Lab assay of single mutants.
Amino acid sequence: MQIFVKTATGKTITLEVEPSDTIENVKAKIQDKEGIPPDQQRLAFAGKQLEDGRTLSDYNIQKESTLHLALR
């Protein structure tokens, strides 16, 4: 499925993911596309910060959802 990640600079990244993917996997995909190390990424959805060990389906993130990326 496709999801979107909006960066602090307003850029939107499109990612191909599975509901079973962990947040860690998603951060690795962002690193592949943007070169941002996962340990510098903070992802949020619906106002909640997402934890590495959880999956997209844990957070009820569905196709075409938009996550927000902040850098630490």
Rank of each mutant, 00 (worst) to 15 (best):
M1E: 02
M1V: 06
M1R: 02
M1C: 03
M1A: 03
Q2F: 13
Q2Y: 12
Q2R: 13
I3F: 01
I3D: 00
F4C: 03
F4E: 04
F4T: 07
F4K: 07
V5W: 01
V5L: 05
V5M: 02
V5E: 00
K6Q: 14
K6V: 12
K6L: 13
T7C: 04
T7H: 12
T7F: 11
T7D: 14
A8G: 11
A8C: 05
A8Y: 08
A8N: 11
A8V: 10
A8H: 15
T9E: 15
T9P: 06
G10Q: 06
G10Y: 05
G10T: 06
G10D: 07
K11P: 07
K11V: 09
K11I: 15
T12H: 07
I13C: 03
I13Q: 02
I13Y: 06
I13S: 02
T14C: 04
T14K: 07
T14H: 08
T14N: 08
T14Y: 07
T14W: 06
L15H: 00
V17L: 06
P19F: 09
P19Q: 07
P19H: 06
S20K: 10
S20Y: 12
D21C: 04
D21W: 08
D21R: 02
T22H: 08
I23A: 03
I23F: 03
E24V: 08
E24R: 15
N25D: 15
N25G: 10
V26Y: 00
V26I: 14
V26T: 06
V26N: 00
K27L: 03
K27Y: 03
K27R: 05
K27T: 02
A28I: 14
A28Q: 10
K29S: 06
K29D: 04
I30E: 00
I30A: 01
Q31W: 14
Q31E: 12
D32T: 10
D32I: 10
K33R: 09
K33A: 10
K33H: 10
K33C: 04
E34F: 09
G35V: 03
G35H: 06
G35Y: 04
I36P: 04
P37G: 05
P37A: 13
P37E: 13
P37C: 05
P38C: 04
Q40Y: 10
Q40I: 14
Q40C: 05
Q41K: 01
Q41M: 12
R42C: 06
R42Y: 11
R42S: 14
L43Y: 03
L43I: 07
A44V: 15
A44Q: 14
A44W: 14
F45Y: 15
F45C: 03
F45Q: 03
A46C: 05
A46M: 13
A46W: 12
A46P: 02
A46F: 08
A46E: 15
G47I: 02
Q49I: 09
Q49H: 15
L50M: 06
L50Q: 01
L50C: 03
L50K: 00
L50T: 02
L50A: 02
E51I: 09
D52G: 07
D52Y: 05
D52M: 06
G53M: 09
G53P: 09
G53S: 12
R54E: 05
R54C: 05
R54V: 12
R54T: 10
T55R: 07
T55G: 03
T55K: 11
T55A: 06
T55L: 08
L56V: 07
L56H: 00
S57Y: 09
S57V: 09
D58S: 13
D58R: 03
D58E: 11
D58I: 03
Y59H: 03
Y59S: 03
N60L: 06
N60C: 04
N60T: 05
N60V: 05
I61K: 00
I61W: 01
Q62K: 10
Q62D: 09
Q62I: 11
Q62E: 15
K63C: 05
K63H: 13
K63Q: 15
K63I: 07
E64T: 07
E64C: 05
S65E: 09
S65I: 04
T66R: 04
T66M: 08
T66Y: 08
T66S: 05
T66D: 03
L67T: 02
L67H: 01
L69M: 06
L69E: 01
L69T: 02
L69W: 02
A70S: 09
A70C: 05
A70R: 07
L71C: 05
L71N: 11
L71I: 11
L71Q: 10
R72W: 13
R72H: 08
